[in-house]
């Protein structure tokens, strides 16, 4: 029998757009990506970009409103606000991305194990997720800080402990939903090992929602860090963080209102950036949405 006669003449559909291409076509996702990349560049190159030393005290020039020498003015100790804000981006992004990154990886692993592993392990992990997420977040954070003392490592630990259960549960639910999917069954029938199924077939299909959730959680974490620093429970002076800059500005709100404004702007922009990026990623990573756009 000739197989040439079986050759199909059907034309191939045009290849679908990549997730990145999809993201960049979306005005919101594009805006988010630009903002996030800008802040990451600021954070990485803070020593090069900051015009002054952020902790250099110069009391002669304290409380200067924005001017050509100090674009965002100076604070109560005469430190350059712009430099402090740029260095603050480093603290804000450093803490939030490290913490959500660690939490994401832990949540991913625990969620996969809970969803795919034996039932008793699942029960234990779900109990752990549920009891942790039933603790009130701020109270829990305050308790941990009281025990361990304020500082960046404590802050990261608190954030990781608070966010892992949520990520774990998301991944577990995704894993459970996909476990019965035809293609997972199909992989079993061709003899794929559990490790292979988890790593090659489950993982790529469950990380999408997690990435979206992570990027939308980063602003929450930045706010948390700012909030705790504002309460003097986070990053201590003289390290510049958006939270303690905001606190300094608040104490001199009447004499120097520009300080609060200047510290608030990067916080708002960065929050918006990550939220937009998350929304954009959600649209771009959802294969069904992509399919609809291609039809």
């Amino acid at each position: 029998m000739s197989f040439a006669a079986e050759e199909i003449t059907e034309e191939l559909p045009p290849p679908g757009r990549s997730a990145l291409g999809q993201l960049l076509r979306d005005p919101m996702g594009m805006t988010g990506a630009i903002l996030v990349i800008t802040f990451i560049i600021l954070a990485i190159f803070a020593p090069l970009l900051a015009p002054y030393d952020p902790i250099h005290i110069d009391v002669r020039h304290k409380f200067q409103p924005p001017n050509l020498a100090h674009w965002a003015g100076t604070d109560q100790l005469g430190r350059d606000m712009l430099s402090r804000l740029i260095w603050g981006a480093r603290v804000a992004l450093g803490i939030s991305m490290t913490a959500t990154g660690i939490a994401g990886v832990l949540g991913l692993l625990l969620g996969l194990v809970a969803g795919f592993g034996p039932r008793w392990l699942d029960a234990v992990l779900v109990l752990f997720f549920d009891s942790f997420s039933s603790l009130p977040m701020i109270m829990f954070a305050l308790a941990v800080i009281t025990v361990l003392g304020p500082g960046i490592p404590t802050l990261i630990l608190v954030i990781v402990l608070v966010s892992v259960p949520g990520y774990g549960r998301l991944i577990r639910a995704q894993t459970l939903a996909l476990k019965g999917a035809d293609y997972i069954q199909a992989e079993r029938t061709i003899g794929a090992s559990s490790a292979r199924i988890i790593l090659r077939h489950l993982l790529p299909n469950v990380v999408g929602p997690l990435v979206i959730l992570l990027s939308m959680d980063i602003p929450v974490v930045i706010m948390l860090e700012a909030g705790l620093s504002y309460l003097n429970l986070g990053v201590g002076p003289p390290t510049p963080s958006w939270g303690n800059i905001l606190y300094d500005g608040y104490t001199s709100l009447r004499s120097a209102p520009y300080m609060v404004i200047a510290a608030g702007i990067p916080l708002v922009l960065c929050t918006l950036g990550f939220t937009f990026l998350g929304e954009g990623l959600r649209d771009a990573l959802d294969p069904k949405l992509k399919l609809r756009a291609a039809r």
Binding site: A181, D182, Y183, A186, E187, T189, I190, H201, N205, P287
Partner: peptide
């Protein structure tokens, strides 16, 4: 080899 009823759903999507 087992061929599933829904061919698209039986292929790993990514």
């Amino acid at each position: 080899a087992l061929m599933f009823q829904d061919p698209v759903a039986s292929l790993s999507p990514r």
